[in-house]
Amino acid sequence: MAIYLKTVKKNDSKRKYLLVGGGLILLLLIVLFGAALLGAERLPLFDLSEQQRTILFDIRLPRILLGAAVGASLAVAGAGLQSLLRNPLAEPYLLGVSNGAALGTMLAFVFFQSFEWSRPLLAFAGAGLATVAVYRMARSRTGMNVERLVLSGVIVTTFLSSVIVMLTTLLDVAKLRSFTFWLLGDLSQSTMNGVYISFGAMLIGTLVLASQAKALNLMMVGERDAFDFGVEVGRVRLLVFGSASLVVGAAVAASGSVGYVGLIVPHLVRLTVGSDNRLVVPLSAITGAIFVIFADTIARTAIAPRELPVGAITALVGAPLFIYLLRRK
């Protein structure tokens, strides 16, 4: 081993982490600030009137904070699922996980409206069931290929969509419009309660996923390899599926199915810092928050005073990227 003791270059992962992480936090603060001031009513930096304070603290801030929680949630769920399933195209929305959560939320809304916690709880259950269903369908004796997983996601998504559509017939016309918006991903219904639940779930989920980052680094190369090198594959799978379902469930219960965030954000992060999940998971959380706040600010302001659902904006960016990634192989 004596010859092995040669001067070793300092590992630069940590430095990269601090640099990119610091830059992203700064950017997050700028976006937070900008988003708070911009909108149908542009707010001044100082001397807010009573009415402007109400807009800022009761309407805009909860919405921005919810956007941050939802963006971070969907991004880390995407990053985790991609590594676990060894597929850069895995994404909560495309796999049907978001739709599972949406169905759960709707069931709660239709049948247990008086119990406020029923929405995130059933959303979590729906997300979990959809995840397991897709995973079971995609897995074959020979393993899991990329196309099979995407197709399974499509099947689960369309199946759940039709159930959701059937449920909407139980709603009255007035609620129908807000539901359609919500299904596309919409932050306009945000309340501080929703913010607390989403933030709590997001923090727990991100911490759990980050704690599995090293195992995921092995899993993303191969499940068998990971097992050979000491990863308890079954436990990691359970933790990743569980935390992805938790964060997606909370996000969808609060804001509907905002699509493609889990695809776009981890992809951008990997382009910048590489594939090490110890970097990808936490940095995806911050970038996801920035991305959704940014997209929602566009949704709020582009055709003000009318609004677009934020999911429409993210899908406009995400769908072409999906095609690109699929073709690139």
Partner: peptide
């Protein structure tokens, strides 16, 4: 793998 993993990262993962 379909992810951009560097050779060093790959080899280091063996130290899990």
């Amino acid at each position: 793998t379909r992810f951009p993993v560097t050779v060093l990262e790959f080899v280091l993962s063996g130290r899990y």
